[in-house]
């Protein structure tokens, strides 16, 4: 059953890596847009938050699968 534990660690780690890169790119774009056009800051902020939220969902799903798998470790 140790392979499950290793698998959970790998899954969460890899998902964190990918989602971290993706959220960094989204935040990069949003912040650059806000710096260049401060008057559009509010709209960019809302759109950026939405993008971050959808990216985060990928990690949350991985996390939930991890929780489900933790119950299988005996």
């Amino acid at each position: 059953m140790e392979s499950i534990a290793v698998g959970i660690g790998l899954a969460v780690g890899i998902a964190g890596l990918g989602v971290g890169i993706g959220q960094g790119l989204a935040a990069n774009g949003g912040l650059q847009g806000m710096a260049r056009q401060p008057e559009a800051g509010k709209q960019i902020n809302n759109a950026m938050l939405l993008a971050l939220v959808f990216l985060e969902l990928v990690f949350i799903l991985t996390f939930v699968i991890g929780i489900l798998l933790v119950g299988k470790i005996h």
């Binding site: 939220v53 985060e56 969902l57 949350i60 799903l61 996390f63 939930v64 929780i67």
Partner: peptide
């Protein structure tokens, strides 16, 4: 799941 995962996590 988003709310559950964030808070429970």
């Amino acid at each position: 799941l988003r709310l559950y995962g964030n808070i429970h996590g």
